[in-house]
Simulated assay, not measured.
Amino acid sequence: MATAVEDKHFFEGTEKLLEVWFSSTSNEDTRNLRTIERCHWEELLKLVQCEIISIVSDEDMDAYVLSESSMFVTSHRFILKTCGQTTLLLAVEPLLKLVANKCGFDKVQDVFYSRKNFTRPDKQHKIHRKFEDEVDHLDTMLKDGAAYCLGRMNRDCWYLYTIDCIGVMDPDQTLELLMWNMDQKKMKIFSKETCASGKEASEKSGISALIPGAQIDDFLFHPCGYSMNGLLPGGYYITIHVTPEPQCSYVSFETNVPQKSYHDLLKKILKVFSPGKFLMTIFANQESIAKDSPKDLENMTAVQGYVRNDHQHCLFKNYSLTYTHFSRPVL
């Protein structure tokens, strides 16, 4: 049971992640989510209990750093990732109405909602405390929902909700690395005591060098905590969020940058953050160059300094999904 002090200073770093691809039954190519004005996004985010801190854009995407994680908007894809006690699923129905009214998108082409199990589910809004309740809520708005759990249900696990139909036919892939029990020497970088700005934290930690060429928007919270979004040409992004407090340390890394193998990137990330445990998921559809990455990971029974605890590979729709869990060996 958490002590009063631990409870007061606890922050749930684990994020809720929603990705929705939209289309229209009229098949018009002029529809674009990026035409929705910022004020409408701000109203939507009030339902989630977070707000916009900054935004960067390129030809393909708008990337928002939020008070609790990030949001990405392309012409027909919406991604919202929020941590803490945010109420992400309360915004799904208003989102569907918003994009229909403002853009004419009347069809959900594909949807993915995922998260790791929470450290303190009791501190979440009632809609998010149990995955079963999240599934029931999504089923009221979406047809042919399909829910999955990977990992150990009584330990560390990862939940996924999607719809059971082939939607996205463009090359699509997502790597997500969720890390906890962090090295506190590394975590000290992500505090105002050590760094004056997000840029300084990005440079000192080595984040700036993880994926060269990215347009970076970073933010260092007071007294600690860090968020960054990075954009690359072609509609690619990276996003990193750090909860450095020792009693609830957590880091997430996510990118849709396509690679045949993510081994080298994984090693770089682990060198920057040095977690005690991590889980990794790789989504890739059959059109992606990353489609064979599950075979690559199957033989990766160990990473330097870590042992593999679980490894699962799933095939559904036109996607493959790999879940793998590592931890430092107990000495």
Rank of each mutant, 00 (worst) to 15 (best):
T324Y: 03
G276N: 07
V272Y: 02
I216A: 07
C83M: 08
D139W: 01
N32I: 03
I36T: 02
N229W: 00
T3P: 04
T87D: 13
K186G: 11
P258I: 09
T324G: 00
K46T: 12
N285I: 05
T322S: 14
G198K: 04
D172P: 00
F326T: 05
P121W: 10
A4F: 08
E132R: 06
L231P: 10
S208W: 09
K260H: 06
H76N: 15
N285D: 08
L80W: 06
Q215E: 10
L138R: 05
L210E: 02
S327F: 00
T239G: 08
P233T: 03
I240R: 05
L175K: 11
V168Y: 06
F118N: 13
S70T: 12
V272M: 01
Q109M: 12
L138C: 13
Q259E: 14
V99E: 03
E51Y: 12
H313R: 10
F219L: 02
C149D: 01
Y161D: 04
G198R: 02
H128G: 04
F278Y: 14
C50F: 02
E200F: 14
C83P: 00
A214V: 11
S208T: 15
Q215M: 14
H9M: 11
Y250P: 00
L142A: 03
T174L: 14
S69M: 06
R38S: 07
L210G: 00
P244Q: 07
L90Y: 13
I207Y: 09
N27I: 08
D218H: 01
E12Q: 13
W158E: 05
D60K: 06
K260T: 12
